[in-house]
Design a binder for these strands. Structure first.
Lengths: 336, 336
DNA sequence: TCGAATTGTACAAACGTTTGCATGCGCGCG
DNA sequence: CGCGCGCATGCAAACGTTTGTACAATTCGA
């Protein structure tokens, strides 16, 4: 049987309420008594029962984390564990815990959110948004990662993906490239949608016509239809001289694909990539890649959440996490 | 204000206790009343307050997950997210939730366990053991993944790593290799320790002398001291013709390293790898790798945990998850 | 027809906290 | 000298459930 507040009270010869107040450093307790109680609690290894505590003050030192789709699926991508690390670090420092959305029957985010909410454990929800915005009808504070939508009145954290797409494309333009392909586009996701907008903006500014057939999805498994088509694009004289790729894994796949065509990165094709993963870092050639800092994304989101829960926030906030370009060996100047 | 059990009771014209019993399908409630109550609860969108419920029956539909070291660090390796997926799937199906050990100030597993325990939310702990066994002095049911130790009286799930190491080495021996190096050994971790034992056993059985200098740690970053030494080993005529590598990432690194020496996989060096990751699958050449099925590891662990919590288990159980070898293109027959 | 067995339901206590209000004490000021 | 005030602490209610026990109503056998 764990020691309760009553045990401590008895041991100190005071009432439970005094113990409670002492441990919450209420100003209504004398310094002497507080010291005694604190010491005694320590010694008896007393930890207040969170269930009881949560029951009475209707908050719970727990925040729920909702992953897009099936939790596990998305965790496969190195991006999410990194976000989780950021979330966890801040949560730990502020003595909060994280409740994970479990897979199982809950397929959609919406379903997972509902489950988390009526489990009643969490007093806030951090939603890693993939595509659809979370329903507005949630009775808990919500922070959305990767999909800012003030419309729903939630707090949000994101990087400016339009700007990132723009910057990536500019980077190549400034090095003389004019035939630039966008790899890994998926209209389902806001991230890629946003980056595409930036890509197009940069191209138009440079007076380059957009080509629909040069905005391609991508899959880094060899010999799929998509990749056969992709290969065809690189088989002509008019092939792209550079690629903006949505993920390092895609870039690595592309490297192999065009190697089969006798083409080399960066000699024949330059690549600017995204997500700055270990795989890309140790790839040959090492990939020039945008670091979107998933750790900071997570850390900011959790900070926002806890501030919100603790009532330190006013109007819905929208934080932006900066990105940075890590220059390595996958981009060459176009000089033909 | 959420609807409580009293609201439902009032709406149905019965007492709260009747509602509670009806929803728990107690045999003492008439079928007619139960049907009415169930329907009404549904309609009023009633979900019992878990805090209150947990408070009275001292269990919580929450199991804590403790990662080795800092949670985020380990999540970096694709192995752990996969375990998490298995854990989550089973948990979700049985309507349990997962509480994550947060990073922050908690560095060691032991510290994280303590934190989880006296947070009081979890009614069971699943510990992903890296090295040290969790302390026995935990008042909660514990399932250990990856480090079976009945000694402490905990349930455990693991794969037979000795056998895996043995099988990997046999696989190479049977294809004519006799100069086999073990890459990625780390005496800190039981996994690699165990696999090394299997490796040595297979070698001894084949009448091959063990060479200390051919059991090497490994780091897939280029140009480190370790890798310079590793390069040296492959620079002689007497170089290893095959490698048992503890992880795909290591194997990929090795491929690059020996490529710089003008050596090719599998022509000059065969590799049997571990963990069957995506990276290895799409690497060139595609890696022959052991699949240790982290998903099943997680699923088994969670099943064990929930059965334990629900009192369906007797003596401490030790489940074993089988591994399998995925044959691809990184091993050649040695014929010189 | 009456008592006993059986069924279905209500009452109240308990889980371990927090917190508004009451109480007791000592002190200073009028 | 006494009244009121401030300070430190105790009392009890409340949070939303679950569950042992008591009770009312119904049914059955004798």
């Amino acid at each position: 049987m764990k020691t309760t507040i009553k045990d401590v009270a008895k041991a100190c010869g005071v009432s439970p309420s005094t113990v409670s107040r002492a441990l919450h450093s209420s100003p209504r307790i004398s310094e002497k008594v507080r010291a005694h109680i604190t010491e005694m609690a320590q010694e008896m290894n007393f930890h207040p029962n969170q269930m009881a505590s949560s029951l009475v003050n209707r908050k719970s030192r727990v925040v729920g984390i909702v992953f897009p789709g099936n939790a596990g699926d998305s965790l496969g991508h190195p991006f999410y564990p990194a976000v989780l690390q950021g979330l966890g670090h801040v949560a730990g420092e502020r003595r909060y815990h994280m409740l994970l959305s479990t897979g199982g029957e809950a397929v959609s985010s919406a379903e997972a959110i509902r489950q988390m909410e009526d489990s009643g454990y969490a007093s806030g929800l951090i939603v890693l948004a993939a595509q659809d915005s979370p329903e507005a009808r949630v009775n808990l504070p919500v922070v959305v990662i990767g999909h800012p939508n003030h419309a729903n009145g939630h707090d949000s954290v994101d990087t400016d993906n339009v700007k990132a797409g723009y910057t990536a494309t500019r980077y190549l333009l400034e090095r003389g490239h004019r035939r630039i392909l966008l790899l890994g586009h998926d209209p389902q996701f806001t991230v890629t949608l946003d980056r595409k907008r930036g890509y197009e903006q940069a191209l138009l500014e440079a007076g380059i016509a957009l080509r629909d057939d040069w905005v391609v999805p991508g899959c880094f498994i060899r010999n799929t239809t998509d990749n056969v088509l992709l290969g065809a694009l690189f088989s002509t004289e008019e092939r792209p001289s550079a690629v903006v790729s949505m993920d390092d894994a895609l870039s690595i796949g592309l490297t192999g694909l065009i190697a089969d065509l006798g083409l080399l990165v960066p000699r024949d094709v330059s690549i600017v990539s995204f997500n700055n993963t270990n795989a890309g870092r140790y790839h040959n050639p090492a990939l020039t890649s945008f670091d979107v800092d998933p750790y900071s994304l997570g850390a900011s989101a959790m900070t926002l959440m806890l501030d919100r829960i603790e009532g330190k926030l006013g109007a819905p906030a929208a934080r932006e996490v900066p990105f940075s370009l890590i220059e390595r060996d996958s981009v060459a100047v176009y000089d033909r």
